[in-house]
Computed example of a mutant assay.
Amino acid sequence: MIKKGILVLALIFIAFSSHAQTINDFVNRGLEENDISQRLPQLDTLITIAKHNSPRLKFFDSDYEYWDGQIDLAKKAWLNNINLDAGYNYGIFDNLSNQQIAGDPGSQTLFSTEQSRYVVGASIKLPLSSVFNRGREIKNAKAEADKSKYQKEFAEWELEQLIVRQYNDLIKAHRLFFISNSIVESYKVQSVRADKDFANGVINVTEYTRLQQMLNQSISSFEAQRSEFLIALKSLEGTVGIKIEF
């Protein structure tokens, strides 16, 4: 009797192991056939697209361009202290006589002529502040430009890390989504058999209820995992800035 009991237990164990192995093989084959990473764009491609579409990186580009322009303005600020004036007048003007021009003090005669007059003048002033602060203003502008450049480099690194994480989260969510679906399908098959067994009196209401609860729980888990998959997909699309087709 003992040997017979051991034999029965061994057969049950073998059958259970075979059943579990069959399920594992099914899931593994399904995951291989439905490997989303084979249909997604390459990770490097997604990173490149994300950098091109990133509003944050565009902001740093504009900020760097602004401060790079401020460097040129600071270098040429001394030109603000140079003034060049020109004027033109046309009309009748009183002029000195030739004697007066020659220095004859006895000549008091002025004569009027119709003529054009041009006036050109230049002036320069150099406040001490513009002299001593020029170098500091140029250095400040360069420092701000460098800061924008380094901020962009750091933002690019952060963006790369985020995309790698979201990419892997999407693949993981899809795998769990597929596994959840496989579990639901397995419990649906069991549920059909449970309906027949319960109708034929093979199982009681307690066992039948337990199997139905397991099916409902697997469906609930499947829906939760489907939601996680969609969230992971939309998160990656939002970061990259395109709709991902697969």
Results as ranks from 00 to 15, higher is better:
residue 31 L to D: 03
residue 213 Q to R: 06
residue 79 L to I: 10
residue 66 Y to L: 14
residue 16 F to H: 10
residue 85 D to Q: 14
residue 47 I to G: 12
residue 174 H to T: 01
residue 158 E to K: 07
residue 92 I to A: 07
residue 89 N to M: 13
residue 60 F to G: 01
residue 16 F to L: 12
residue 65 E to Y: 08
residue 72 D to T: 10
residue 127 P to L: 07
residue 122 A to C: 07
residue 194 A to H: 02
residue 185 E to K: 01
residue 33 E to H: 11
residue 220 S to I: 15
residue 22 T to F: 02
residue 7 L to W: 02
residue 147 K to W: 03
residue 242 I to T: 12
residue 64 Y to F: 08
residue 241 G to M: 04
residue 64 Y to N: 11
residue 207 E to A: 04
residue 223 E to C: 02
residue 37 S to C: 05
residue 188 K to A: 04
residue 119 V to A: 10
residue 204 N to A: 05
residue 176 L to Q: 08
residue 60 F to C: 00
residue 141 A to H: 02
residue 31 L to Q: 10
residue 215 L to W: 00
residue 167 Y to S: 14
residue 22 T to G: 04
residue 228 E to P: 00
residue 189 V to P: 00
residue 83 N to T: 14
residue 172 K to D: 07
residue 185 E to C: 00
residue 24 N to D: 14
residue 223 E to M: 09
residue 120 V to Y: 13
residue 66 Y to I: 12
residue 51 K to Y: 01
residue 146 D to S: 05
residue 17 S to R: 13
residue 221 S to W: 01
residue 230 L to R: 14
residue 140 N to V: 09
residue 78 W to I: 15
residue 150 Y to L: 07
residue 222 F to M: 05
residue 112 S to P: 05
residue 83 N to V: 10
residue 77 A to Q: 13
residue 141 A to T: 06
residue 223 E to I: 15
residue 99 Q to E: 15
residue 141 A to N: 02
residue 188 K to G: 00
residue 246 F to D: 07
residue 165 R to F: 03
residue 85 D to L: 10
residue 17 S to G: 11
residue 80 N to Y: 09
residue 63 D to I: 04
residue 147 K to N: 04
residue 166 Q to M: 10
residue 65 E to N: 12
residue 174 H to D: 07
residue 168 N to I: 10
residue 193 R to C: 00
residue 146 D to Y: 04
residue 113 T to D: 07
residue 49 I to C: 09
residue 216 N to H: 08
residue 78 W to P: 08
residue 135 G to S: 13
residue 122 A to T: 14
residue 110 L to N: 14
residue 175 R to G: 03
residue 154 F to D: 14
residue 61 D to Q: 04
residue 187 Y to N: 02
residue 14 I to A: 02
residue 53 N to P: 12
residue 86 A to Q: 10
residue 162 L to A: 11
residue 133 N to S: 12
residue 103 G to C: 14
residue 27 V to R: 07
residue 77 A to V: 06
residue 70 Q to A: 03
residue 226 R to K: 14
residue 168 N to E: 15
residue 136 R to Q: 14
residue 182 S to M: 00
residue 64 Y to K: 13
residue 191 S to G: 00
residue 104 D to K: 04
residue 24 N to H: 06
residue 73 L to G: 05
residue 218 S to H: 00
residue 115 Q to G: 05
residue 179 I to Y: 00
residue 175 R to H: 10
residue 241 G to H: 06
residue 221 S to Q: 12
residue 178 F to V: 15
residue 15 A to F: 06
residue 14 I to G: 00
residue 227 S to V: 08
residue 246 F to P: 09
residue 235 S to T: 15
residue 208 Y to N: 12
residue 23 I to M: 03
residue 195 D to C: 03
residue 55 P to A: 00
residue 119 V to M: 11
residue 206 T to K: 06
